[in-house]
Design a protein around this nucleic acid. Structure first.
Length: 581
RNA sequence: GCACCCAUAGCUCAGCUGGAUAGAGCGUUGCCCUCCGAAGGCAAAGGCCGCACGUUCGAAUCGUGCUGGGUGCACCA
């Protein structure tokens, strides 16, 4: 249930009544009417702009509409007060019974509270991580993995049918480099000095690959030319790297539904088919590109290439799909891959890319727009860098030595839950600082701790009640006499709970899971605030010794908070804790 | 030179896809708590929302043009 949507429906009804009564003209378009929490809580619980947006089409002064609407709305038992303010705002104060109903709804719906049908069962494909299969995942991949996974959970919670997908870049030159690097480690496994030439991957994560190659091939590949082993070793090493990557993802709690291979597109005619599909639309031609201006290219020479007319769909220049030697550019299999996603019938596509792929967005969107005739929207989220710190100091890593901070390092030091939450405390297109010491700090300025602490306190309330001889199930609490929740501080928390379904919808509409993390911090803050007031005012404590009825109502509020925190953390992929340790 | 992203309190950042007097945490200042439901609490100060036009009843939010920072810019993936 989304309270805001329900009240909005009531307002639209009231407007219809006014039109029937002749106060308003018939057939007004109410699409622009919104119901939102006012910025200042003193104005009431909800505010609507109905009078202002309808003023012009109705040909009436906003305040006149607002007055009439207010009178109509006061007949609604849910609405305790309706006041016109400012240029024509209509401020609504809802009856406590409404907020008490929110608490009850949270308890009866449990983990499903806030679940919406926004997606209407449409299918969406979320492609994320897609790290090159040339080594273990490092910090740079963590944020994309977490955002992609949380977004997937958010959309699933909002009524979408979600497929999580990983695109394996196993078709390009970098996997040949991987093969050559692995070959040196294979020689090393035989006691030979590895020759890690410039441009090869120096990381010692390939040592086990060399060992495994020795176990499989013995010494049969030693002193053989590349043509004898390149394909086999590439296959073998890529497979091992993907196994490693899957393990890394599992550490973070990320589970993919589909792994798609770039290599598998070659030789199947899929790339050709995708390009032909574009050609049929007149979007493929042979031509030459202008050199980029303002950037001096020493070795620029005009080349005849096969180009995709991406400018027809909003790109700045047309893009090559084929090199001058007749082989495909990276873009070509990528087009084929997205074509594949479109033909698999997804209603929407989402790509999570690193920020360094910013220049790639327009051409990819152009390709999908062209291939789907504009029917399948593609949203691309660029994930900005994570800067590592330790105790306030930048955390250095040496690329030269081939040592870098891996995903495994991060998860082992900070834990998967903390890592996930922290990665969602910024919107995706802003850089994020991650301090290994700070994220483990137990204080208010650590949002993970603060939210978990609130959940633990809720659990503690239930434990204490049990010690006092009061054992409540969620059903008991939902059936409690919630009219006892009448104190302003309690209703404030209930209001925040009531915002949860709306917040979920906004986050899902904008594909922004970080909003969940911010909401949880606010909810935790309101809960802690109420808890603290119990220090001064005994009547605000959740457990009222010897008074089962009152305790039941107050504990219902606490438990409802816990339900929402657990649901929110669930979307972030974080496990709520029962107690702090 | 072009494209994309960012610019909000001293610092780190939210800000509901156009709403009212722009919020939070940290820091600062003052008060409270010192076997308590306090790994703290309450409150205050602190803002030309980078700049300038424009659209609108109404702009931090949308548009245009600037300024400053980041990223990417022909056969690299």
């Amino acid at each position: 249930m989304n309270l805001f949507a329900e009240i909005r429906a009531g307002i639209v009804d009231a407007l219809t009544h006014l039109a029937d009564a002749g106060t308003l003209p018939q057939g007004l378009n109410t699409a622009a009417v919104s119901v939102e929490p006012p910025r200042d809580a003193a104005h009431g619980d909800m505010a609507t702009n109905a009078a202002m947006v309808l003023s012009k089409p109705a040909g009436l002064a906003p305040r006149a509409i607002a007055e009439a609407l207010a009178a109509e709305l006061r007949k609604d038992p849910r609405i305790e007060a309706a006041d016109v303010a400012g240029p024509g705002f209509l401020n609504l104060r809802l009856s406590p019974a409404v907020w008490q109903g929110v608490v009850k709804a949270a308890l009866t719906e449990g983990a499903d509270f806030g679940r919406s049908t926004l997606g209407q069962g449409a299918s969406v494909n979320v492609e994320f991580v897609s790290a090159n299969p040339t080594g273990p995942m490092h910090v740079g991949h963590v944020r994309g993995a977490v955002v992609g996974d949380a977004l997937s959970r958010l959309l699933a919670f909002s009524g979408w049918k979600v497929t999580r997908e990983y695109y394996i870049n196993d078709g390009g030159a970098q996997v040949n480099v991987l093969a050559r690097s692995a070959y040196e480690r294979y020689r090393e496994a035989h006691g030979l000095e590895p020759e890690i030439a410039e441009g090869l991957y120096p990381g010692d994560y390939l040592v086990p690959v060399g060992e495994a190659l020795k176990a499989k091939y013995g010494d049969s590949l030693l002193d053989k030319g590349e043509q004898f082993w390149l394909d086999d070793i590439r296959e073998f090493a890529t497979e091992m790297m993907m196994t490693e990557i899957r393990g890394d993802l599992a550490l973070l709690g990320v589970q993919m539904d589909v792994y798609s291979s770039e290599k598998a597109l070659y030789g199947t005619g899929k790339i050709e088919a995708a390009i032909e599909a574009l050609r049929a639309k007149g979007l493929i031609y042979d031509g030459m590109l202008e050199p980029p201006k303002g950037k001096t290219l020493e070795d620029w020479e005009p080349r005849q290439q096969t180009l995709f007319r991406s400018t027809a769909h909003g790109d700045d220049v047309d893009r090559p799909v084929m090199k001058s030697d007749g082989s495909w550019t990276y873009f070509a299999p990528d087009i084929a891959y997205h074509y594949d996603k479109v033909t698999r019938g997804f209603d929407a596509l989402i790509d999570i890319f690193g920020a360094d792929h910013g220049g790639y967005v327009k051409r990819m969107k152009a390709a999908v727009a062209a291939l789907s005739d504009g029917k399948v929207p593609l949203d691309i989220k660029l994930i900005q860098l994570v800067k590592l710190y330790k105790g306030g100091e930048p955390f250095k890593m040496s690329k030269r030595a081939g040592t870098f901070v891996t995903l495994r390092d991060v998860v082992e030091q900070a834990g998967a839950d903390v890592t996930r939450f922290m990665m969602l405390t910024r919107k995706n297109d802003v850089a994020l600082d991650f301090d290994f010491d700070k994220v483990l700090e137990q204080s208010k300025d650590n949002p993970v701790f603060y939210v978990q602490y609130a959940h633990a306190r809720v659990c503690s309330v239930l434990r204490r009640a049990a010690e006092a001889g009061m054992v409540f199930s969620d059903a008991d609490l939902a059936g409690a006499d919630l009219t006892q929740l009448s104190h302003e501080a309690e209703l404030k928390l209930a209001r925040q709970i009531g915002e949860w379904p709306r917040l979920v919808e906004i986050a899902a509409k904008t594909n922004e899971p970080h909003r969940i993390a911010f909401y949880l911090y606010e909810l935790a803050s309101d809960f802690h605030s109420l808890w603290n007031r119990g220090n001064d005012d005994q009547s605000l404590r959740f457990v009222q010794e010897g008074n089962v009825a009152t305790s039941g109502a107050k504990i219902a509020l606490a438990r409802a908070t816990g339900v929402v925190i657990a649901a929110g953390l669930g979307i972030l992929g974080v496990k709520p804790v029962q107690e702090m340790r």
